Amino acid sequence: MSDINIIGIDIGKNLFHLIAHDRKGNEIFRKKLNRAKSIQFLSTLEPTIIAMEACCGAHWLARKCQEFGHDVKLIPPQYVKPYVKTNKNDFIDADAIAEAAMRPKMRFVSPKSEQAQIGVLIRRIRSGYIRERTTCMNRIGSILLEFGLSFPRGYHHMKNLLQWLAEQKEPIPPMVIAEVTNLLDYYHLLNKWVAEQERKLDEINKDNDLMDLLQGIPGVGPMTASCCLSAVGEPKDFKNGRNFSAWIGLVPHQYSTGGKSKMLGISKRGNKELRELFVHAARSVMWRDKSAEHYFGSWLLELKRRKPFNVAVVALANKLARIAWAVMSNHKPFELRN
Rank of each mutant, 00 (worst) to 15 (best):
N26G: 12
E27G: 14
I28G: 04
F29P: 03
F29Q: 03
F29H: 06
R30Y: 09
R30I: 06
R30L: 08
K31M: 11
K32A: 11
K32Y: 04
L33T: 09
L33G: 07
N34W: 05
N34A: 08
N34C: 12
R35W: 08
A36M: 14
K37C: 02
K37I: 11
K37H: 13
I39M: 08
Q40K: 13
F41V: 03
F41R: 02
F41P: 02
S43Y: 01
S43V: 00
T44C: 01
T44Y: 01
T44M: 10
T44D: 09
L45K: 03
E46D: 10
P47A: 04
P47C: 04
I49G: 02
I49T: 09
A51H: 10
M52I: 05
E53K: 00
A54Y: 03
A54K: 00
C55N: 00
C55H: 01
C56D: 07
C56G: 13
C56K: 08
C56E: 15
A58W: 01
H59V: 07
H59N: 15
H59D: 10
L61H: 08
A62E: 00
R63A: 08
R63Q: 09
R63H: 12
R63D: 12
K64W: 04
C65W: 05
C65N: 07
C65T: 07
C65I: 04
C65H: 06
Q66K: 14
Q66C: 13
E67T: 15
F68Q: 09
F68M: 11
F68C: 10
F68K: 02
G69T: 05
H70S: 02
H70F: 07
D71G: 07
D71W: 01
V72T: 03
K73S: 05
L74N: 00
L74P: 00
L74H: 00
I75P: 00
P77R: 01
P77V: 06
P77G: 06
Q78I: 12
Y79R: 01
V80S: 01
K81F: 10
K81V: 08
K81A: 08
P82I: 04
V84N: 05
V84Q: 12
K85L: 05
K85N: 13
T86I: 04
N87E: 08
K88S: 12
N89L: 02
N89C: 09
D90I: 02
D90Q: 10
I92V: 13
D95T: 15
A96Y: 11
I97M: 06
A98W: 02
E99W: 00
E99L: 07
E99N: 05
M102E: 09
M102Y: 04
R103G: 01
P104E: 02
K105E: 10
M106E: 02
R107Q: 12
R107W: 08
V109P: 01
S110W: 03
S110E: 07
S110A: 15
P111F: 00
P111R: 02
S113V: 02
S113N: 13
S113L: 11
E114K: 12
Q115K: 15
Q117L: 14
I118A: 15
L121Q: 15
L121V: 10
R123I: 10
R124H: 14
I125S: 15
I125L: 15
R126M: 15
S127L: 13
S127P: 06
G128P: 12
G128N: 14
Y129T: 00
I130E: 04
R131M: 10
R131H: 13
E132T: 07
R133M: 13
T134F: 04
T135W: 11
T135G: 15
M137F: 06
